[in-house]
Amino acid sequence: NKFNKELQWATWEILNLPNLNEEQVKAFIDSLRDDPSQSANLLAEAKKLNDAQA
């Protein structure tokens, strides 16, 4: 389904953001699992944090 694909994509993207530490990655992945419908928003937040920590 749509959420499953978005969840998989967001998870992959977050795992590959180079500037997030392990705790941050875990927190984003946990949030994705808690509410897959928020995957686009969570991915945007993760990318923003990744850029800020570059």
Rank of each mutant, 00 (worst) to 15 (best):
N1A: 02
N1H: 04
N1P: 14
N1S: 02
K2D: 15
K2P: 14
K2R: 07
F3G: 14
F3A: 14
F3I: 15
N4E: 15
K5W: 06
K5H: 06
K5E: 15
K5S: 10
K5N: 10
E6Q: 06
E6P: 04
L7P: 02
Q8W: 10
Q8T: 05
Q8S: 05
Q8H: 03
Q8M: 08
Q8G: 03
W9H: 13
W9L: 08
W9P: 02
A10V: 12
A10F: 14
A10S: 04
T11P: 01
T11R: 07
T11Y: 06
T11S: 05
W12G: 04
W12F: 08
W12Y: 07
E13H: 13
E13M: 15
E13W: 15
E13D: 04
I14S: 01
L15D: 03
L15V: 06
N16R: 13
N16D: 03
L17D: 00
L17H: 03
L17R: 00
P18A: 12
P18R: 06
P18V: 07
N19M: 08
N19L: 05
L20Y: 00
L20P: 00
L20N: 00
L20R: 00
N21W: 08
N21S: 04
E22V: 12
E23F: 13
E23P: 07
E23Y: 12
E23R: 11
Q24Y: 02
V25P: 00
V25W: 03
K26Q: 08
K26T: 07
K26N: 09
K26S: 06
K26G: 06
K26D: 07
K26H: 10
A27T: 10
F28S: 01
F28D: 00
F28Y: 06
F28W: 03
F28K: 00
F28L: 04
I29L: 13
I29E: 02
I29W: 03
I29N: 02
D30T: 15
D30M: 15
D30L: 15
D30Y: 15
D30W: 14
D30A: 15
S31I: 06
S31R: 14
S31Y: 09
L32R: 00
L32S: 01
L32A: 05
R33F: 15
D34N: 13
D34S: 13
D35L: 06
S37Y: 08
S37W: 06
S37L: 07
S37G: 07
Q38P: 01
Q38S: 10
S39H: 14
A40P: 06
A40Y: 15
A40V: 09
A40G: 06
A40I: 10
A40K: 12
N41K: 13
N41L: 12
N41T: 13
L42I: 11
L42R: 06
L43E: 01
L43I: 07
A44Y: 11
A44Q: 11
E45F: 14
E45P: 00
E45R: 15
E45G: 06
E45K: 14
A46N: 00
A46H: 00
A46D: 00
A46T: 01
K47A: 04
K47N: 07
K48H: 08
K48V: 13
K48Y: 11
K48A: 11
K48P: 00
K48D: 06
L49M: 08
N50T: 01
N50M: 01
N50L: 01
N50F: 01
D51Q: 12
D51G: 09
D51I: 09
D51Y: 14
A52K: 14
A52H: 10
A52G: 07
A52T: 11
A52E: 11
A52R: 12
Q53W: 07
Q53F: 07
Q53K: 04
A54F: 12
A54D: 09
